[in-house]
Design a protein around this nucleic acid. Structure first.
Length: 820
RNA sequence: GCCGGGAUGGCGGAACUGGUAGACGCACAGGACUUAAAAUCCUGAGAACGUAUGUUCGUGCGGGUUCGAUUCCCGCUCCCGGUACCA
């Protein structure tokens, strides 16, 4: 009788051994002949406590990393800390301690929690983004971008939260209020720092086609986010004025149907009109308060007011009124649109509401259209369009654009929805923006020899303005250009800056010579498998793609060395739910990983999170299910007992062969799961089936015992990526070479898959009527004869004539009959 | 609105490329062991009818293709995620 399965003891033992052996470190040895594999999980924000979402993420990554090591790859599997950010400042205010202290303490705590899970990270590469050795390179790159004109300062209308005293990114505004303090967000015009992601819009869009290892969903989301549309820019004149009113349209073919113009409330023309029109001024103020969020926007009533100005049609010279409309956005295109009610739903509704004319200029290619009842928004053939009559929409777009172009009144234009990345934050706990403001020289980048601009770590935030403004030692600096006393930039970077390049930094985490070591990039980049939550589908993953290209173009590596994209394959894991909803403190439905580990051990926690659902789907937490996982491990443990079985009995060739068949189909199935889509739930189910088969197997003879041993050894090995401590201990008890468990993966023995006899399902008229057992190479006629000799099958063919017989080798026989 | 994904037992989920629907697990029921409990083991189970061999129905709904459809095609319903009044 073997001793019980003692998870805590075993896990401690193996974690110590792994740490001593350094087995999880990635090798930078140029002599290492193994192919590389870079497996990355999204690094955590050090909130202090690991939650189930982290556990799921890291168990997935660890399974992949361990499997690849077993397959003979040199695996890079690093971890670190996304350590700047607001929660540290809020905690600092609450506890009256500097955020650095809180952050580093949390990192220590979370590192222990990760280690307790037995994750096979290369801890020698651990990074924390709040360390100057890290963010100095971000500052360095930023100054390069400034020189190239890719980083710039500009006035912009931004979301501002008063209590938090900072601008907010769009995604931090939820239904018009600040995500953190629920205060309504104000839109303010502020001078902010931007990085010109729009300059890379085309490449970011085009390279999406290369990402076939990404979920289509994420690619689609990014494509929409970039939002490319092609059309024309058209310059309308203004009555009795030299000025023009420029608009962008995707439908230049409908130009002759324009009956009015609409401008955004923030448009200069609207402002000008409001000067002499109090009613209009009030309307504009109302518009500026309106929500930018889609939910409200969807239901919002379309409203407008005439400005009193008239625009001059660029072709006909006719006059059309200019309106201010709440649905026109200043931030997209030119903040003004031409309105063609006959061919646009929104313009149609607006025209009906304000009784503006509707002029049809496109008709369907076939049939008629009643423009009195609805707009015709499809492409078609031009009518009422003078010289352009009879052209189809596609041709007309070109013809009209060309015509305008010749007169200097328009041109082809590509418009993106993507806007430049606002990277400045009025916060303390972030990487300082490396700029010195000089009265004479303006905004001057900090020279390389003065980098990093270190963030003082001993300041105490109070919730109002950044404490940096009170820190004289930080604020005062001499202008690098003219030497006169100047002031440092007080804003810090958006924390998405740090997370945009950490995957590259892991390849040479201690480099003090350069942001990246190009040789290390060549060795490791790009990431072969990236795993993380789908909530980062657009922002983080778009910024990281962008940053990768920026670093490439800054000469840190070439396309050949580092690729044009940072992540080849992406797995977006689903959320962990409890009682049907996301775990949260306020709902009181959280499950603490620590409690699970203490009760059942890390292996059970790992097993359950991988088994309960396919990785990309949501995982419903189920305490009973966790116990089921624990039971499974205990059951496997007891398989050891049977190794002492007596072997004096008769040989049972059929049972032995059947067991070998199960062993090798299991190897096939589990390997397949790792190579295609990481369906670990299915892989683990297959291992459970193998365990069940081993449990049911009666050892009688020496051959049986040998095959049984083959089975438990294969089981031990294949369990290793999922429940590594258990697998190692189990393998040790089996007397296996440990190398086999960390560096070997079982191979399928094709001969074990060959069966002499097969079971064939017999269908009559496509309905299952029985099964027959016959030799694997039996002919269709043999099979048919055997089926007909089976009374329970034959009765379905009584008085019938066989019309057709379909044999699917190894699977089924379908007999098609009809009344004789 | 648009884009993407989905709907399979009481539950989580399986099902290669069109070939036995419901693997594996959870929960449940019955039994064994035990003074008892825990632990463990065995057995059962999609639904309906039937004592039973069994028969019929069954993968959101309605059609179609096929010897055969959870799988492919057409038309819907509902759910989830994303999102842009995009000019």
């Amino acid at each position: 009788m073997e001793e019980r399965y003692e998870a805590q003891e075993i896990e401690q033992k193996w974690q110590q051994r792994w740490e001593m052996s350094g087995i999880d470190a990635a090798s930078d040895d140029a002599q290492d002949q193994r192919p590389k594999y870079y497996c990355l999980v999204m690094f955590p924000y050090p909130s202090g406590n690991l939650h189930m979402g982290h556990v799921r993420n890291y168990c997935l990554g660890d399974a992949v990393a361990r499997y690849k090591r077993m397959q003979g790859f040199n695996v890079l599997h690093p971890i670190g800390w996304d350590a700047f950010g607001l929660p540290a400042e809020n905690a600092a205010i609450k506890n009256n301690r500097p955020p650095a202290e809180w952050t580093y303490a949390n990192i220590d705590q979370m590192r222990e929690q990760l280690k307790r899970l037995g994750l096979s990270y290369d801890w020698s590469r651990e990074i924390a983004t709040c360390r100057p050795e890290y963010y100095r390179w971000e500052q360095w790159l930023f100054t390069r971008l400034m020189q190239k004109g890719l980083a710039y300062q500009s006035n912009a209308e931004v979301n501002w939260c008063d209590p938090c005293h900072t601008v907010l990114a769009n995604e931090q505004v939820v239904d018009g209020v600040c995500w953190r303090c629920d205060t309504p967000v104000v839109r303010k015009n502020l001078k902010q720092w931007f990085i010109k992601i729009t300059a890379y819009a085309e490449e970011l869009l085009a390279d999406l086609d290369k990402l076939d290892g990404w979920p289509e969903k994420v690619v689609g989301m990014q494509r929409n986010w970039i939002g490319k549309s092609t059309g024309a820019e058209v310059s309308f004149g203004l009555e009795s004025s030299d000025e023009t009113l420029d608009i962008f349209t995707t439908r230049p073919d409908t130009l002759m149907g324009v009956t009015y113009m609409a401008v955004a409330a923030g448009h200069p023309l609207a402002k000008k009109a409001a000067e002499s029109n109090a009613e209009l001024a009030a309307f504009i103020t109302e518009c500026s308060k309106m929500s930018t969020k889609e939910a409200d926007v969807e239901t919002m009533e379309k409203k407008g007011m005439p400005t009193g100005f008239n625009a001059v049609h660029p072709i006909t010279g006719g006059l059309v009124p200019v309106w201010v409309a709440n649905f026109v956005l200043m931030g997209y295109g030119t903040g003004a649109v031409m309105s063609v009610p006959a061919h646009d739903e929104r313009d149609y509704a607006f025209a009906k509401k304000y009784d503006l004319p509707i002029r049809q200029v496109i008709r369907p290619t076939e049939g008629d259209w009643d423009i009195e009842s609805t707009a015709f928004t499809e492409q078609g053939v031009l009518i009422n369009s003078a010289d352009f009559d009879g052209l189809d929409s596609v041709t007309a777009k070109q013809a009209i654009t060309e015509h305008l172009s010749k007169q200097g009144k328009g041109s082809e234009r590509v418009q993106y929805r993507l806007r430049d990345w606002l990277v400045s934050r009025q916060r303390y706990w972030g990487a300082p923006i490396p700029v010195i403001h000089c009265e004479d020289c303006g905004a001057v980048p900090v020279p390389d020899d003065q980098l990093p601009v270190e963030l003082p770590t001993d300041l105490q935030p109070t919730g109002g303005a950044s404490p940096l403004s009170q820190c004289e030692a930080f604020v005062h600096a001499d202008c690098p250009t003219c030497g006169k006393p100047a002031r440092r930039e007080l804003d810090t970077f958006d924390t998405f800056m740090e997370s945009s390049w950490y995957m590259s930094r892991y390849t040479s985490p201690r480099s003090n010579e350069a942001m990246l070591d190009s040789a290390a990039i060549e060795r490791w980049a790009p990431v072969d498998q990236y795993i993380g939550g789908v909530e980062h589908a657009v922002l983080h993953l778009l910024y990281a793609r962008f940053y990768h290209k920026l670093m490439r173009d800054a000469g840190l590596f070439t396309s050949e060395q580092g690729g044009d994209e940072p992540f080849i394959n992406l797995l977006t894991q689903g959320m962990v739910l409890k009682d049907g909803s996301k775990m949260s403190k306020s709902k009181g439905n959280t499950v603490d990983p620590k409690a699970i580990i203490e009760r059942f051990g890390a292996d059970t926690a790992r097993l359950f999170t991988l088994f309960a659902a396919p990785p990309e789907k949501e995982l419903e937490w189920n305490d009973a299910g966790v116990e089921g996982g624990y039971r499974f491990l205990k059951r496997v443990w007891r398989l050891l007992e049977k190794l002492d079985a007596e072997t004096g009995g008769d040989e049972d060739a059929a049972a032995v062969k059947a067991l070998r068949f199960t062993i090798h189909t299991t190897i096939q199935r589990v390997t397949h799961a790792f190579e295609h889509g990481f369906a670990f739930n299915v892989a683990i189910a297959a291992l459970m089936e193998l365990a069940n088969a081993l449990q049911d197997f009666q050892i009688r003879c020496a051959v049986g015992k040998a095959v049984y041993r083959e089975g438990v050894e294969a089981l031990a090995t294949m369990l290793a990526p999922f429940v590594p401590h258990f697998a190692c201990e189990f393998a040790e008890k089996l007397g296996m070479d440990q190398v086999a468990v960390v560096a070997g993966w079982p191979k399928v023995d094709e001969t074990a898959l060959v069966q002499d006899e097969i079971t064939l399902v017999v269908q009559v008229q496509g309905k299952k009527r029985g099964e027959i057992i016959l030799a694997k190479d039996a002919s269709q006629d043999d099979a048919l004869a055997l089926a007909q000799s089976d009374a329970s099958i034959a009765k379905w063919m009584d008085g019938m004539q066989i019309v057709k017989v379909v044999l699917v080798p190894g699977r089924l026989l379908n007999i098609v009959v009809r009344p004789a």
